[in-house]
């Protein structure tokens, strides 16, 4: 099996992988990073969103070896309960989380946007999360939360 070397949440990782295995499975099963979720495995829901070299992508559509030599950030690298990222704080405060299954994906899309555009307009925020589906919230509170995190 080929050897995959990548940086995950600032840590160098070396693994033997099946080249075609979706990166999301490597992250969840081999590295135990269970914050990245699987909703559809077809790029449709955004639950598996991670940053690949700083850009938001669907990790279900990435064959593992494609990440060779790349830097990856998952939700675990963004923040946790003790040390949350401002986006996580504000989305929660604004009521943008219900069951929470979609939330890591939305946070990653938001962080991907803020990397590129630190002071986004509402339209930009809406576009940035238009590849993420949520069954519970109705989206508007997630938008408010992301915008509020920038005001802080």
């Amino acid at each position: 099996m080929p050897t995959l070397k990548m940086i995950v949440n600032n840590e160098p990782i070396t693994l033997e992988v099946d080249a075609l295995r979706p990166l999301v499975d490597v992250l969840r099963e081999d590295l135990g990073l269970l914050g990245t979720k699987v909703g559809c495995r077809e790029g449709e829901c955004g639950a598996c969103t991670i940053l690949l070299d700083g850009k938001a992508v669907n990790s279900c559509l990435i064959p593992a070896m494609r990440a060779h030599g790349c830097s990856i950030v998952t939700i675990e690298g963004v923040g946790d309960v003790d040390n949350p990222h401002p986006v996580q704080v504000s989305i929660t405060e604004e009521g943008g989380v219900q069951c929470g299954y979609c939330t890591p994906g939305f946070v990653m899309s938001a962080v991907g946007l803020l990397n590129k555009s630190p002071n986004p307009t509402e339209a930009e925020v809406r576009e940035a999360i238009s590849g993420n589906l949520c069954r519970c919230t109705g989206y508007n509170r997630i938008v408010k939360g992301i915008l509020k995190s920038v005001e802080k």
Partner: peptide, 18 residues
């Protein structure tokens, strides 16, 4: 039988004001 064929609303299907 998938999210591509069974279409739940995306953000653009929801009015900005409810």
């Amino acid at each position: 039988d998938s999210f591509t064929t069974y279409l739940i609303p995306s953000i653009y299907d929801v009015p900005p004001e409810i």
